[in-house]
Every structure is written in structure tokens, then in C-alpha cells.
């Protein structure tokens, strides 16, 4: 009975105390039958990468509303690669200007979900992109 269960880490990097969005996403993913590990607020990229490795997740969802995404998101991707965990899918969400999205995608963030995205879209993306 090796049914494949998708494990997701939902993380809040940096100095940002608003996790309502992250919790909505966590809940939606749970209701879609995934195992969601929530890290809590104000995590460093190092903490997030370490948690992702220990939990052996398939996906890391980063949520950020503070504006530091161009710095923090690629850093998580880079640390995962260093830990031999570059196969983990990394997606991001939050208040992210359209202009920044190409840069983030170039740096290994598979997809960015901005405010107003239906949770079903994120679920669909994750389900179809997890190896």
C-alpha cells in the first residue's frame, strides 16, 4: 500500500509577522490530502532548508509579505542545493510585484502565487509538479 503522500513544508522566512495567508494555504493543502508541516514565523533560510531536509518534504512553500523575497527565496533554493536536496520543489507566495517574478523564476522558484490566486490553482500546480 505504497500510496504516495505529498509532504509540504509551509515556511515564513524573514521578519514578517503575518501568517494568515500561510495558514490559509496550509489548511487548503491539508484538505487536499497532503501532510503539511508548518514552521512558524520568522525563520531564517538556513532553518527552513534544515527543516525541509529532516522532514523529507516534496515541496517547500514560502510565504512573504515584507518585500525581502528577492533576497530570501533564492537563498532557500541555494541552501537546498548545497544540502543535496535540489530536487525539492520550491514555490512562493505573498505580496510580490509582477516585475520580480522573472528574477525569482530564474533563481529556482518554480512558481509564484500572488494575492487573489485561488488555492485550487496552487494545489493543482503542486500535484502536477511533484516527481
Amino acid at each position: 500500500m505504497a500510496e504516495k503522500l505529498i509532504r509540504v513544508l509551509v515556511a515564513k522566512p524573514g521578519l514578517d509577522g503575518h501568517d494568515r495567508g500561510a495558514k490559509v494555504v496550509a489548511r487548503a493543502l491539508r484538505d487536499a490530502g497532503m501532510e503539511v508541516i508548518y514552521t512558524g514565523l520568522r525563520q531564517t533560510p538556513e532553518q527552513i532548508a534544515a527543516a525541509a531536509v529532516q522532514e523529507d518534504v516534496n515541496v517547500v512553500c514560502l510565504s512573504l509579505l515584507s518585500g525581502a523575497h528577492n533576497h530570501l527565496f533564492p537563498k532557500v533554493v541555494q541552501l537546498l542545493k548545497e544540502k543535496d536536496a535540489g530536487d525539492i520543489l520550491v514555490v512562493g507566495g505573498g505580496v510580490i510585484p509582477d516585475a520580480d517574478i522573472p528574477y525569482l523564476k530564474e533563481n529556482g522558484i518554480a512558481e509564484i502565487f500572488t494575492p487573489g490566486t485561488p488555492t485550487s490553482k496552487a494545489i493543482e500546480f503542486i500535484t502536477s509538479h511533484v516527481q
Partner: peptide, 23 residues
């Protein structure tokens, strides 16, 4: 749904970077 929210790490995030700890 078969899904779960696993939130115990929230209280242990200081331990994430400790080489001698696995959570």
C-alpha cells in the same frame, strides 16, 4: 481527507540548525 497539519516544529525551531538533533 487524509491530510494533516503538523505543527510541533513551531515550538522547536531553535533546534533546526543543531547538527546533533533530528526532528
Amino acid at each position: 481527507t487524509g491530510g494533516a497539519i503538523l505543527g510541533d516544529r513551531v515550538r522547536m525551531s531553535d533546534l533546526n540548525l543543531d547538527e546533533g538533533v533530528y526532528i
